[in-house]
Amino acid sequence: MKVCAVGSGPSSLAFAADMAKFGYEVTVFEALHDIGGVLKYGIPEFRLPNSVVEAEINTLRDMGVNFVPDVIVGKTISYDQIHSMGFDGIFVGSGAGLPRFMNIPGENLIGVMSSNEYLTRINLMGAGRGQGYDTPVLKGKNVVVCGGGNTAMDSARTAKRMGAETVTLVYRRSVNELPARAEEVHHAMEEGIDFHVLHNPIEYIADENGRVKEAILQVMELGEPDASGRRSPVPVEGKTETIPADLVIVAIGVSPNPIIPSAFKGLEISRRGTIVVGEETMQSAVSDVFAGGDIVRGGATVILAMGDGRRAAASMNEYLSKKS
């Protein structure tokens, strides 16, 4: 029997490995030109070398998994075409989509970009490595990174390696609430990233060429605990600070990739744009479509995504065994 995965990130790779072991013929469709998803475009080389990812992918190739880059399921090929190609089950691991921005004045200035853009230019496209890649990336002397998660840490540490004189991480709560893993925070501090906690950007100011030159930050303090159980950040009335910033990297999260939710009919889509699946089965409202990773969770970790992929494989195997 033939099954396929949409996207080649951690959830799909874990799914593909298990399904190959179960004896299925597995094809993985990837929208980008390279296999690995966030492991390649997102996570920097100093944290996860591409050669390690490549070795894992080659192991899957040896197990018979077929990887097809440059195919966007839902655009290049449709749900119906997948069926006419003979696939009995589809796993959707299409991952993160649109980067979130804060909708504050000056956010579309030159030099303000999402962490996805910054990291993709460098990690996937080879920008700034001095090895003759065509893709450029803006460099900053004074880099500001907004956010407190693992991606914010990756962006800050990458900026440092790209030659920034100062890298300031701006986070609206205190150090204790940083969502990044403690280890990542520790590494970032060790590397000289300036943690500007209890501050929140409210506006960016441009130079005469339309490039960002300063960030205006609102000073915050901690108030009552919010729905997440963490003490909520509250603006300190009238207290702001202006810092130099010629490159601003916004790492405040992403919303799920919109392509599959809008292309596959019959899926149940949450208000956040994620695909709704059974908690254990990972099965969607369309019985032969399973899903996992960020397209289901909205924004999670590689570990959770891989767990989803494995659960989806077990559950799809059961579903297809019953069917045949």
Partner: peptide, 10 residues
């Protein structure tokens, strides 16, 4: 654009 599929926001 960089990825062109709704990921980078460029």
């Amino acid at each position: 654009m960089v990825d062109g599929t709704g990921m980078c926001g460029a």
